[in-house]
Simulated assay, not measured.
Amino acid sequence: MTFFDAESGNYWGNTTSPVIGNEDERLSARSVKIFADGALRTGGAALYEPYADNPTTNGFMRLDEEILFKYIPWFLRDGWQVNVHAIGDRANGVVIDAFEASLKGANVTALRPRLEHAQIMTPSDVARLGQLGVIASVQPTHAISDMWYAQDRLGPERVKNLYAFRTIMDMRARITLGSDFPVESMNPLSGFYAAVSRLSPDGKSPHGPGGWFPEQRLTRQEALRGMTIDPAWASFTEKYLGSLEPGKRADFVVLSQDIMAVPVNEILDTKVLATVIDGKAVYGSF
């Protein structure tokens, strides 16, 4: 992923070509990342209404709307995958507006634009996300980190739209699950557990042992897909990664127990016994 300083006005997307796979398909550089706003924890996420715990501000956009509407279509036109960081509901709304304007008549499957984080969105913007085919790249461990202060920051109604993973999926948006390391743990089991439980590692949440807004939990199959075949598609590598089938690389791990079947409170006890890349064990044995 290439970082882009939009404020410099130095557009290079038409003079630098994307790198789309080297001879063994191990390296691609075809994406740019643009930051629309800041973070919820710091009060920098751009909201439509002021913060509940600080009514003097509703956060801020890091880039003017005009910049997003100018550069997103340019990068898409020149063959780059555009990934935009958006946390607050206003930032997400503006970015979706820019994607909607940029994607008219375009082949979305060929472009695969991504909304990075997509933390809080209005229901209408979630619906547009699905209609446009924009990928929601989310991080489940953020939800269980932020759940302890989120309602104080957003209020009891607006917080319902935060980390609404089930709602995003129900609106038929494509979703991928990541870690946002080093902000959160890079352990994929932590993300899997957070997605299916919405509980802290010790089994707690502001809403009790059933999880924080438990109606937003993902099924285990959805979480597994969100960490395998769907991110492979989101990174243009679905032809050789993301699932175990003939013609693809044998990249997988061997776990100490079946995370699709064990009780939720035992998922984090799982150990990696072996890691296999291209069919060769590079860690452990099996």
Rank of each mutant, 00 (worst) to 15 (best):
A118F: 08
V19D: 01
L115R: 05
E25F: 10
R26D: 13
G13Q: 07
N187K: 04
L115Q: 12
A223I: 06
G59N: 09
L132Y: 02
L268F: 02
G208H: 07
D37V: 11
I96G: 05
E222D: 12
L111N: 02
I229Y: 10
R112I: 13
P156A: 03
P188V: 02
P188S: 00
Q81P: 13
P182Y: 09
E184C: 02
F99A: 11
N265W: 03
I175P: 00
Q119F: 04
E215A: 14
A110W: 04
S190D: 12
D64P: 05
A173K: 04
G79F: 09
E7W: 10
F3L: 13
P263W: 03
F35M: 11
F60D: 04
L255Y: 05
V108K: 09
F165T: 02
R153I: 14
L273Q: 15
G130F: 03
N83L: 06
T109F: 11
E7M: 07
E25H: 14
A143H: 09
V253D: 01
N83V: 15
Y51S: 07
T15P: 00
T109N: 14
D5P: 10
L111M: 12
L218M: 15
E157A: 10
R41F: 10
I168R: 05
T228F: 00
L111I: 13
A118S: 15
F192Y: 14
